[in-house]
């Protein structure tokens, strides 16, 4: 279980997180929504301590990771799989080596076993047989899916997806949503999904949290969110330019 307590983070004068409080339920999918540039990726990076907060805490299974030393932090990180917004594939390695990387680093599996898992994960994201390609030879959407395959290669306990379906066609979006739902169910994953895609949000999420002006302004089940009268949410879900979310 992940608990975020009163998290504050500024870059220079710009306040990005201004007291975020959020509990991520174990074995459930929590979707975080919010405007572009609103700090969703920054929040996600705090959960694996790629960023250190100015103040506040992040508890992973009861451990405050904001204060951990490198060694203990590494142990905690082994529970996580992460899909970065830009996929962050290693461009000096082939697709196969990318997906195999967490398995090689964190397990003592034999090469033949690893190859099998890699092939399986690539099949799951609809990219059978591209092990030998380099990331630079892939389209943006393909890179995203390879990043997804890498994030779930280990079957981690917790997976963080930063916009898993952005840039994919509607069919692929549907397929990836289903993949996220299936892996979540089959392995009882705790997952956090950042998404802008209104349809995906309601389909994938057990819980939905809205981040606005550095705070979680609304949190609830898809039904609760759909019924919410909070003007921020109403505007976000309807995609209107009128309302409390300013576009400038």
């Amino acid at each position: 279980m992940i608990k975020i307590v009163d998290l504050h983070k500024s870059f220079g004068k710009q306040k990005v997180l201004d007291g975020v409080n959020l509990e991520i339920e174990e074995g459930k999918t929590t979707v975080i929504i919010g405007r572009s540039g609103g700090g969703k990726s920054v929040l996600l990076k705090h959960i694996i301590r790629l960023l250190k907060p100015d103040s506040g805490h992040v508890l992973v299974d009861g451990t405050d990771i904001t204060k951990l030393n490198d060694k203990d932090l590494n142990e905690i990180r082994k529970k996580f799989g992460v899909l970065f917004q830009g996929a962050a594939l290693f461009d000096s390695m082939t697709v196969g080596e990318n997906v195999a990387f967490p398995l090689k680093e964190q397990t003592k599996m034999k090469d033949s076993e690893i190859r099998k898992i890699v092939a399986d994960r690539l099949r799951a994201v609809g990219l059978t047989g591209i092990e030998e390609k380099m990331p630079s030879e892939l389209s943006g959407g393909m890179r995203k899916r390879v990043g997804l395959a890498r994030a779930i290669a280990m079957h981690p306990e917790i997976v963080l997806f930063d916009e898993p379906t952005t840039g994919l066609d509607p069919i692929m979006t549907e397929a990836i949503d289903n993949l996220i739902i299936d892996t979540q169910k089959n392995f009882n994953l705790t997952s956090i999904v950042i998404s802008h895609d209104v349809e995906s949000i309601f389909k994938v999420g057990h819980k939905i949290a809205m981040l606005h002006e550095g705070k979680i302004v609304e949190y609830g089940t898809p039904e609760e969110i759909r019924e919410s009268r909070n003007p921020v949410l109403v505007q976000f879900l309807s995609g209107s330019t009128e309302g409390p979310i300013k576009i400038i």
Binding site: E75, L89, P102, E105
Partner: peptide, 12 residues
């Protein structure tokens, strides 16, 4: 391109 972040996250 966040590849260094990706390394750290994979405990490497």
């Amino acid at each position: 391109t966040e590849q260094i972040d990706a390394l750290s996250v994979m405990a490497a």
